[in-house]
Design a protein around this nucleic acid. Structure first.
Length: 116
RNA sequence: CAGCCGGACCGGACGGUCGCUCUCGCCGCAUUCCGCGGCGCGGGAGGAAAGUCCGAACUCCGUAGAGCAGUGUGCCGGAUAACGUCCGGGAGACUGGCUUCAAGGUCAGUCGACGGAAAGUGCCACAGAAAACAUACCGCCUUCGUUCUUCGGAACUGGGGUAAGGGUGAAAAGGUGCGGUAAGAGCGCACCGCCGCGGCAGCAAUGCAGCGGGCAGGGCAAACCCCACACGGAGCAAGACCAAAUAGGGAGGGAUCUCGGGUUCGCCCGAGGACGUGCCGGCUCGGCGCGUCAAACCUCCGGGUAGGUCGCUAGAGCCGCGCAGCAAUGCGCGACCCAGAGGAAUGACCGUCCUGGCGGAGCAAUCCGUCAGACAGAAUUCGAUUGGCUGGCGAGUGU
RNA sequence: UGGGCCGUCGACUAAUGGUAGGUCAAGUGCCUUUGGAGCACUUUGUCUAGGUUCGAAUCCUAGCGGCCCAG
């Protein structure tokens, strides 16, 4: 499964829209925001890792691990949904298998809530 | 142990699968353009990219003048694009050895923000008589005065001399020795220190010896300050180009703020006021401007935001050799191309091995399990500075 | 990218270059039938390393940590 740039959420305006109008799903290592898009198709995922979570090394590591977990677990054939993941500090050190199961559960919830 | 030199050492090593990003090539889609997607070859974090602080490149803005601020640097010479960096040298300080009565000299090592205290101001607690145009507390002396006297001399709220001795302090108006004196004193002499003069050596800082002078007056400028020198401001979110949506800006008409003048009665010219505001990029003086002094409405015209493209990586580059130089470094020749993202590219998993810690088994070699393998990641570029680990040397000095 | 500020007992704060002080907290004792309150006493500190100075929390340099502002 690939995870190219086109499937990423990159625009500031998109992030703002998801935060303001979207729904939230909480879990142990992260908070997931999601919002159904009216146009286009397919899933788009973005990450927000603020400076409070550590230096550049820590933050880049969190993003890489999350990207890999999303690449392996996301439901790619879903409807047009924008997702933003806010990690917590434990993402840098947690077991990678736990991250995978958590991401997988989060997408199940999103599918149920948005799919209908 | 400090020190010096080196390191092609630091997400341990090798292999595999999947994925990310960039250049190039090919293919497909859209083809009105920007483009979107796939496949393949290749490139893809560090000595310090990070932090720090200083300097430069580059870019834009500014640049009539005078004065005052402000900031930084501060022995000398050199290197460099430049520096507060680097290299070399010299005063000076500290520690130890030798020498000397001592001061001092000399050798070795380490440090070395080091212009001016004879421009001015300020500070120097406690202690001490006195802490800065010096001073007489205890002492010491007395050729002075008075009193007493056993006529030897003794005493004093007395006068005078004295900076040798005591004591205080971080610091008390050169040091040591000899002479000298009533007691003392650079009062005299020798050596050392200091000041001045010219000489020699050196590019210079400075050093060396000589001559002359008995000798100037504390410390602090990493206190204010003075002197010399340097400094326009901002920073790749600089800046250039293209350019939505929405909102809004400017010009002219509409339409004379006041006074004066003119008038073809449309308005025009000159002077002035009030308010607001811009520049001389910190301030002042002084100066140069600009706008408004009715709104709706009508006509015409920029510019900018989101976003995109460029800037954006071949360079004060890196490696090797030679030459010049004590060195920093420079010059010459050869070879090489080595990241360019932009919500921001290096990750995940598997296997084998290495090193270390912990636990267990074993007499032991060893085996099993588990955890870990620095600091940290390009954000315009470059120079400088600030780590850990490790290998070698370790003469001399200290313990 | 540029600029500014701050680190003092466990907590909050003072201190012209000259003995680091106060409040609360903590501990011990007194008082009280007990607890609280009160009283007395005690403990503990200048972020780190160098330097200037006779003397540094203060001045200088370097490092560590934290906060804030502008675009």
């Amino acid at each position: 499964m690939r995870f190219p740039r086109g499937a990423r959420l990159l625009r500031h305006a998109d992030f703002e829209r998801v935060y303001k109008q979207g729904r939230r799903h909480f879990s142990a290592h992260m908070t997931v925001f999601y919002l159904r898009r009216s146009e286009g198709a397919g899933l788009r995922v973005g990450f927000t890792v603020s400076k409070m979570l550590g230096g550049a090394v820590q933050r880049n590591r969190m993003k890489r691990r999350l990207r890999e977990a999303v690449r392996l677990e996301a439901a790619w054939n879903s409807a047009a949904v924008d997702v933003v993941i806010n990690p917590k500090k434990s993402v840098a050190t947690a077991d990678f298998a736990a991250l995978r199961t958590e991401i997988s559960r989060a997408f199940e919830v999103i599918q149920k809530s948005v799919g209908r």
